[in-house]
Each structure stands twice: as structure tokens, then as C-alpha cells.
Amino acid sequence: MRVQKKAKKRVLAVSSSGGHWAELVRLSPAFANHDVIFVIATPKEYADAYNLSDYAKGGKIITINDANRWDKVGLIQMLIQLIRIFIQVRPDVVISTGAASGFFAVCLGKLLRAKTIWVDSIANAEQLSMSGQLAGKYADLWLTQWPHLERNVGPYYRGDVL
């Protein structure tokens, strides 16, 4: 009988810096046994600090420009950087905790037929983040971390990162 081996997948884990990043790292046991590439959107001047950090042991870290919805040029630069990463990595799975960078990543992932996962930040206790609302359409697994924000059509509640 042939022994079935679970093939390693290429996982792209994308988020902005700060809380989003902390939450993504907290989720990493769920995908740590695959080939993981972390992408962090951080202001350029701080990028080196993340490259040197011990946060995501074993995983490769790529830093990209940070931008939010008030900075259209920055958003386009970020999207271009992400497209390049997607061409190189060809991920099987894309996971994000937010924000704008993660939304783009989940869209690109869906477009390229990767499995996509959006975990809306625990910071969004009253309503989903703007990127979280938009990401629902593109995420195969769409989660909120607050039970009162769960709906029949998603997002779903499956506990939180604490």
C-alpha cells in the first residue's frame, strides 16, 4: 500500500506591522509545518528591524511598503511589490490578519487559485475592518474574532488568537 504523505505547501502569510503582525505570528502554529514566507508591510525606515527580528523563526521574511487607503500611490506600489512576490513564490495558501496589504494578498491569491484565509483582527470588536469586509468575497475561510460579529454568510467565528 502506498503511504500517503502530506505534501508541504507554500504558504504566504501577509500583514501590516504592529498588532496585525502580532496576531499573524500567534496563528503561525497552524501553518508552521509548511514552507512559510512572511510578508510584512512596514514603513521603509523600519524594515531592517523586522528583517533582523526573531519573530518568525524559520520562516523567511520579506518587507514591503506600508500604505493605507489615504495613500493611493503607496497602495499601488504595495500592490506591485505583492504581484512580484506572488510571481516568485506561487503560493498554495495565502493567509492574512489585515490590513490593506493583506486585502491585496487575499485578492491576488484568489485570482491565482490559492486557498485564501482572512482572520479579521481582534481589534475590530465593534465591526469588521474595511479591508475585512471587502476581503470576505475573496477569502475561502473568512473569520472574525468576535462571536457577535458572526453571520450566516460569513464572517464565521472560530475563537480568537488569545
Binding site: L27, L143, Y156
Partner: peptide
Amino acid sequence: YASGKILEAI
């Protein structure tokens, strides 16, 4: 690190 349901779902 997180534990439980959320990791299982992913």
C-alpha cells in the same frame, strides 16, 4: 501562540 479552534479551522 494561539490555540484551539482557530488553529484547527486554518
